[in-house]
Amino acid sequence: MRMLKSAVVAGAVALMFASAPVAQADRDEAFADQLHTYGIYGQKDYNAWIAKLMCKRLDNGHDADAFASAEFVHGQLNRGSTTDQAWQFVGAAVPVYCPNQASALQHAADR
């Protein structure tokens, strides 16, 4: 649980320091680079697509909270990926692809 909270808090902190929007390809590349620091690999376009889909699920209420999003993401990551990596993915994706969902990360961190 401590790692989970650390990952959520790290995502919230990253959101606060997010820079101005950049070109789509640059954004996807930067996101892939950040995922690599967590040991999350895979095709750049696939990971960006998962992040965008995760945001859409949060936006339309399909996923009620960041916990549901992390569960969805975990199911999409490579076999052997950890729950912590799913949370790191969510924490990295929100500031890049759906900063409007920052409150979902904050609520998860507060729990």
Results as ranks from 00 to 15, higher is better:
75 G>Y: 00
84 D>N: 14
24 Q>F: 10
85 Q>R: 03
51 A>M: 11
46 Y>Q: 12
31 F>H: 02
83 T>P: 06
80 G>H: 09
99 P>V: 00
26 D>P: 04
84 D>W: 13
28 D>K: 04
70 A>T: 08
41 Y>H: 14
46 Y>N: 10
74 H>N: 14
60 N>M: 03
89 F>T: 03
22 V>K: 02
47 N>F: 11
22 V>W: 01
104 A>Q: 11
66 A>S: 12
91 G>A: 01
33 D>Y: 00
80 G>Y: 01
5 K>A: 03
35 L>G: 01
39 G>N: 05
73 V>I: 11
71 E>S: 07
106 Q>D: 09
97 Y>K: 09
75 G>A: 05
93 A>R: 07
8 V>I: 10
43 Q>G: 09
38 Y>D: 11
57 R>Q: 02
43 Q>N: 14
46 Y>T: 14
80 G>W: 02
69 S>V: 04
80 G>P: 06
21 P>G: 06
27 R>F: 00
38 Y>F: 13
79 R>F: 08
97 Y>V: 12
19 S>A: 14
10 A>K: 09
69 S>P: 07
25 A>L: 06
73 V>N: 06
49 W>C: 04
92 A>R: 08
65 D>A: 05
94 V>I: 15
86 A>Q: 02
47 N>Y: 11
62 H>C: 01
82 T>D: 00
8 V>T: 07
34 Q>L: 13
41 Y>P: 00
13 V>D: 12
12 A>F: 12
22 V>P: 00
46 Y>V: 14
110 D>R: 08
41 Y>L: 10
58 L>V: 10
